[in-house]
Amino acid sequence: MEKSIERCLSETCSMDGVIGSVLADQQGLCLGVKGKASISSSGVITAIADQVAKLEPASKNPIIVLENDTNQCLIQRADRATVAIFKTSNPVN
């Protein structure tokens, strides 16, 4: 099971501009992490996804983008997991 998660995270991290990714379960516990991302961020990521989903309960799971001058963090909750992808705002092409 871990291998498929690790493969998936590695594939994500190999994409342009992506510097790290985290996968968390419903309880906010880390299932996997790759690249420049912290294991301890899994709880906060899940909490953010849960709170934002409350804004429009009728809509399907939103994609949340947190951005600063250099980096972006994209968060989306699927059925039983939440994923966060960290990427640079201006990837070098």
């Binding site: 968390a24 309880q27 906010g28 516990l29 880390c30 301890s40 709880g43 906060v44 899940t46 909490a47």
Partner: peptide, 11 residues
């Protein structure tokens, strides 16, 4: 409750 979030309170 979000277990991961509780664990992150440690710091």
């Amino acid at each position: 409750c979000n277990t991961g979030h509780i664990l992150s309170l440690e710091n």
